[in-house]
Amino acid sequence: MKHLIKPIAILFMLSLLFSMINPALGTAYTLGWDLVDSGKHLDWGGSTKYQNDFNYSVNTWNNYKSGVIRKDSIIYLKDVTISDITLKNNDAGETDGDNKTIKFNTFNIDPMNTTRRRNVCAHELGHALGLNENPNTGNTMYYKSSDTYTLSRDDKDSYNAAVLNW
């Protein structure tokens, strides 16, 4: 029995180490659908008055996985159409999987600062990529608009998981 102590101790230490690493990992939240085409691109068309913020958000996602989101062209047919609406309610953005649209609500976005606008744009793009909302603050995919517009560990892990569904 004495000779078993050493390997069991090592295995125990490794298990302990792994259990310490695991909570540090993000959580993946995926929708089970996306607007990405068969060539694994999300080509957007249409326009929004928040175009600069939208373009910034495109770069945010593309900086993590290069070249996935592109502007549509004669060669690249649009996979999602962006537009603006005005409605007095409490939502800022909306992604429609069936209609393949992203709509930005000017009533609620107009009063926002740049960071919030970028958060809304990045959030809706995340849905189009197949990410679900995140129930925790500090994530771009948190359901309430916030000052977070960079990708958190959860956002990245969700993106990695969504890519596997493409």
């Binding site: 939502d91 800022a92 909306e94 992604t95 999987g97 809304v120 849905h127 909302e133 359901y143």
Partner: peptide
């Protein structure tokens, strides 16, 4: 059912 995905300006 086609579920719309939204971002909200309040904690709904």
């Amino acid at each position: 059912v086609n579920y719309l995905q939204n971002s909200y300006v309040i904690d709904v």
